[in-house]
Design a protein around this nucleic acid. Structure first.
Lengths: 343, 343
DNA sequence: TTCTAGTTTGCACACGTAGGCAAAGCGATG
DNA sequence: CATCGCTTTGCCTACGTGTGCAAACTAGAA
């Protein structure tokens, strides 16, 4: 079916080796021969077989991006940026979702899942650091963690300072004069480091401001989707003393929370101020527009891709911890300026 | 590094052929031998090399899903469902975005992009049918089109009846007593069949109801994102006689349009009713919740995966046109019932 | 013992590309 | 004519798996 090197060689009436010389850009090839071979390649519509090439070279030129759920907007935006960043350095990207399946995550990390092949792995995990730590042999492939801190420093990672981001968000709420501040997104067993760090930042901001952290105000979320944010906020508003501000660990939770406040007959931000994290596009058009902590996702994507590409080329490097910057953006949901939406 | 069949054979002190017999599930293998070999495989942590296997068998067990932009919620939700559907029939999925790049689309279709390998292609294209038609040789790999009709019937496709969906949506607006109905998402050159069909449905609904189609009410959208919907709606509201209803060719356009109406100091749905297409999760929590045409994406994904899997197994089959059902869902943006959001 | 069925092995080739090495061909220069 | 440098070729091995074929071995039955 598809033409091979051999077919091209036959068609151009040259040796297989010469065709290979042309394809691989060998120096000592006459211009004349180069043209002749290339003409033959075009006529036969030759394209190198990537599988054979990968088998031979051990390099596929493919990175894998693994996220829990691809239809969570932040992950989708991350995927977009990673694909773009990878394109710039000559890598293709395949996107996979684990669907909150810990086994699937473990498979990918240990290389147990070899049904796909890639040279490096960008991993936005749910798997707990303890599980990462338990992996004796290390990952089967160059690995960069996204948005997750590995305390042992055994793996590369790119993330914001989650504790500080949460601190800044809560301080913004405190600056509005709010005192009964709740949080949505706390993880029940606190196994995931990201929520853990955000809870720490929340507590620190409250404590430093001399405000009480009321345990009923710390709400779990099974997943970081609108439905969970809605349910958690609804429960918060049903408390004897409902909060006057809610800090959500993800914008998507915040979108659900805002709707719940509205459905309870209350106003955002007048009755309840709401702020999230992620700065997804949705929050720039919603009513009210959503205050949030912005992450500079393109930067994160570029750094992560660069890092994994480096590690592919030089496997022995020590793990690097890259911290990306973050910015609190005040929009309508905390009474901030109405942003001008560009045409 | 990684153990091969040969390593396992050596370790178990059996022949390579026997190990292969175990791996490939050959009938005449004694239980004793099977256990012995499997023990050796576990000890060496053997995993078959997918690249070598693919090279040998010509099958990778991977489907490619190609969408214009992965961070457009509908495509992300589609990707989620496709991944799930593929998982059920034993395929893995790689997701790629073309970024509105026609060349990239052509590359994928003609097989010019062989940097990735897959057995079948699920393609949600921007490429015009005329370009598809111009492809003499057909696609390089089994292909199913998503959400796009190929009039020649040369390729499989799975889509809703776009003309009818638009017709139903507009009829819903007409049923509310609206008469000045605008549309956002018309394609300037009408090269893409999906918008073309939706415009046709829009016109038919208007004509049948005896309403005039005012050309200034047909607004283009460079892309189907919030920003384009916002800009188009803002322009519509600046007309001497602004519309009292807007039909958007995508929910994301509608989200932008709703915000524009609000920013103009008007109300949705009182002053302007808005309806979209896609039924993305965002529209179930937005203020107002968004009326839309729902697509049964899981069904579409399953059908598409099934179809491409069939075609991989039996390449010669005639092209099939699968039409998925759609439903108009009336929510707040057209004055519909406030949906109960489940906890 | 001999036949038969089941089991294991060795061998060889294939998939398509990569690339080391030596040799041969070619033209030009000294 | 000899030497040199550039170009082209042939040959061989490798990547790891899949599989057809024939042969050898084992064990049980006739």
């Amino acid at each position: 079916m598809a033409a091979t090197l051999r077919d091209v060689a036959r068609h151009a009436q040259v040796s297989l080796r010469t065709v290979n010389n042309v394809v691989s850009g060998y120096q000592h090839v006459s211009e004349q021969m180069r043209r002749k071979v290339q003409a033959a390649m075009e006529e036969l519509d030759y394209r190198p077989n990537p599988v054979a090439r990968t088998l031979r070279t051990g390099r596929s030129g493919v990175l894998a991006l693994v996220v829990p759920e691809i239809d969570v907007p932040y992950f989708a935006e991350l995927a977009r940026e990673v694909i773009n960043a990878a394109d710039e350095v000559g890598y293709r990207v395949i996107v996979d979702q684990t669907g909150h399946d810990h086994d699937r995550e473990r498979q990918l990390l240990t290389g147990a899942d070899r049904s796909l092949l890639f040279d490096g792995l960008l991993f936005s995990p749910l798997v707990t650091p303890s599980e990462l730590r338990a992996m004796q042999d290390g990952p089967a492939v160059p690995l960069v963690l996204l948005g997750e801190h590995d305390f042992d420093g055994r793996y590369d990672h790119v993330a914001i300072d989650n504790e500080r981001a949460a601190y800044d968000a809560v301080q913004h709420l405190i600056g509005l004069g709010r005192e009964r501040i709740a949080a949505i997104g706390v993880q029940p067993q606190e196994t995931y480091t990201t929520p853990q760090q955000r809870t720490a930042g929340f507590r620190r901001a409250m404590t430093e401001a001399g405000l009480a952290v009321r345990e009923p105000y710390l709400r779990a979320a099974a997943h970081y989707r609108r439905a969970a944010g809605y349910a958690a906020a609804r429960d918060l508003l049903a408390l004897p003393q409902p909060p006057d501000a809610i800090f959500c660990y993800a914008d998507l939770l915040a979108m659900g929370a805002v709707r719940a406040v509205f459905d309870a007959g209350l106003s955002v931000p007048d009755d309840v101020a709401v702020i999230g994290i992620d700065d997804i596009d949705e929050g720039r058009y919603s009513r009210p527009t959503l205050s949030t902590v912005s992450l500079d996702t393109p930067h994160i994507a570029r750094e992560a891709v660069k890092r994994v590409a480096d590690r592919i080329d030089e496997p022995g490097q020590p793990a690097l911890q890259i911290t990306a910057s973050h910015t609190v953006i005040a929009r309508e949901s905390t009474g901030g300026e109405v942003p001008i939406i560009h045409s």
